[in-house]
């Protein structure tokens, strides 16, 4: 296995294109485990952490641009980002231990395409857009279009995700992410839900978007959520409907981490609880 550490996006793309079977190395917290167990044996790894653009969090007039190789700890240390996107930050802050946080990247979490990736539902709720560079240039897609199935993405050969764009946060708006794991830390989500809400001046929900994770081959946009939440004040009956809709949208499997039945129920509970947190946050937001 070769190791390359390009200094620019162009070099990285060229390296990926020229070496068949190369893998991108960002935080490496999944890739190194795969290398060790023999489930991955790439001809080369292309370390993208020395590309400045992939390591930066920048605040622009349009929102935040987060480099794909930015690690969880860098996100949760970024006060302005955490203030604007608390749900995205808490999702990033849930990936693995403190040690894993010091390495695991946003891009890796999304592009490994684990159905249980914590940041994906939060990014979906945030309407995050992924910027992709490849041999044929640059393109942008909504984050929910990256994963196409467990471990599979829509990225073409030689393409890499370079950054994620989070829109500018409107007034009276906030997000939240919750997941269920058997312990308090160190587990893979059994189910997860991200909720992003914007309120009217009187506290009525004007815009809502919900992403759910670990309950289908990919994280899902909960299409029913706006219809249920918008126009309400997040009352109990609304939350019950939201929970039911989340369970109904889920297409989970039985595995060592949970059962179909359990996941359906719990994703609803999480959606409802995350909605309430987002609602309270939005009420308190400027």
């Amino acid at each position: 296995m070769q190791y390359q550490s390009p200094a620019s996006i162009e070099e990285a793309v060229a390296a990926l294109a020229s070496i068949g079977g190369a893998r991108v190395l960002a935080g490496g917290t999944d890739l190194l485990v795969q290398l060790r167990s023999g489930t991955a044996s790439p001809a080369a790894v292309i370390d993208v952490k020395n590309i400045a653009a992939l390591r930066a969090i920048t605040e622009t007039a349009d929102g935040f641009r987060i480099g794909a190789a930015v690690c969880g700890a860098e996100i949760t240390d970024h006060a302005a980002l955490v203030a604007a996107w608390p749900g995205v930050a808490e999702a990033a802050g849930l990936i693995g231990s403190t040690q894993v946080q010091g390495r695991a990247s946003l891009g890796g979490n999304v592009c490994n395409a684990s159905p249980a990736a914590d940041t994906t539902p939060a990014l979906i709720a945030a309407r995050a857009v992924a910027e992709i560079v490849g041999p044929n240039g640059r393109r942008s897609i909504p984050v929910e279009q990256i994963a196409t199935g467990p471990g599979k993405t829509s990225l073409a050969e030689g393409e890499i995700v370079v950054s994620f764009l989070l829109p500018r946060r409107p007034a009276r708006s906030a997000d939240a992410y919750l997941r269920l794991i058997p312990r308090t830390e160190m587990d893979i989500a059994v189910a997860g839900a991200g909720v992003n809400l914007t309120l009217d001046a009187d506290g009525t929900i004007a815009d809502a978007r919900v992403g759910i994770g670990a309950v289908a081959p990919t994280a899902l946009v909960l299409d029913a959520a706006p219809g249920i939440l918008v126009g309400t004040k997040c009352d109990e009956a609304t939350l019950a409907k939201l929970a039911e809709a989340a369970g109904a949208a889920a297409r989970p499997i039985d595995d060592k981490r949970g059962t179909v039945d359990y996941r359906r129920k719990v994703v609803g509970v999480l959606a409802k609880r995350a909605a309430l947190i987002a609602y309270e946050r939005a009420k308190g937001a400027r």
Binding site: R183, T184, I188, K256
Partner: peptide
Amino acid sequence: LENPGFLDYRMPVASD
């Protein structure tokens, strides 16, 4: 064995 690692063989961690 489906859980031959500390990820899914879930021993208590400090925060538990």
